[in-house]
Design a protein around this nucleic acid. Sequence first.
DNA 1: TTAAATAGGACTAGAATAGTCCTCAATTAA
DNA 2: TTAATTGAGGACTATTCTAGTCCTATTTAA
Lengths: 149, 149
Amino acid sequence: MLRLSKLTDYATVILSFMAKDKTQVLAAMEIASMTGIAQPTVSKILKLLVNANVLISTRGAKGGYALARTPEEISVAAVISALEGPIALTECSISHQGCEQASGCDIRGNWGLINQTIHNALESVTLADLTRPAAVPEEVFVPVASLYR
Amino acid sequence: MLRLSKLTDYATVILSFMAKDKTQVLAAMEIASMTGIAQPTVSKILKLLVNANVLISTRGAKGGYALARTPEEISVAAVISALEGPIALTECSISHQGCEQASGCDIRGNWGLINQTIHNALESVTLADLTRPAAVPEEVFVPVASLYR
DNA sequence: TTAAATAGGACTAGAATAGTCCTCAATTAA
DNA sequence: TTAATTGAGGACTATTCTAGTCCTATTTAA
Ligand code: FES
Ligand code: FES
């Protein structure tokens, strides 16, 4: 199904909530109770988002989490890669080691292009787009095949 | 990582091999020995591809598998959905049941758009594109730096 | 100093995947 | 007609991955 992990799904919910909320800094526990996601799980996700520079954290009392940039500047690609690592469909798109199929596999370059296309698509959608109420058919069409012919 | 399953990866290797091979009909065992993938696994994949109308099978002695269409007419999207089901990042893009996040989730429409975009990208690349020798310079691989900016 | 928070990582249980195997059905050729 | 070949379909197991929890250390405000 080419699916996103559950944690990534939660992350979008959490970030959407944070984008809509006026408050600048929110504690993990607040977020948990507002979104209905279990607190330890929320914390785990928030930490990952901090590591990927999507969120900024403040320690200590009165501490919490805040968006590192405006919702317009946070791409869906950034969120996904924060939770799941580099966006790539196949192993060999990330590192070219250990991918020698017996009969010589020349697929690499082409998969790379596909990955690039998908990455572009995800890069072009921001958190602001996700929170926008009704989807504006802002067609993000990238004709990959045309790049070959 | 937004990754493809290993079986899907194998499927592309198998199909690439079949596309390049002159022979019309290939037995599962032949494919296994040529690609180096274990025979039972190859069979499993071939069966799935038949069910999805990507391959056509012939039973009995001298039987085997053949591409259902020309490589130009077999999209990567078709291959992926044969192995992994509908191409969609989130559950609620497939069926809209049971996705009511406490605070009212209006994400659907927008995820739908993202899914559509990715689907378009995968639909536009064919098996012929994958087998094409060295389509692109190395530079096309996903620029990891952009994931963290 | 104390309380409130995050950082980091270990750990467990459950789910999904990969991979194998067995039996049945169909086709060809001797 | 029979035997050999090959795919269909599905059950099954083992392994890996994911989700989720929890513990301890660190940082900061009051
Ligand atoms: S499997 Fe990595 S290049 Fe083909
Ligand atoms: S989770 Fe399905 S619509 Fe938001």
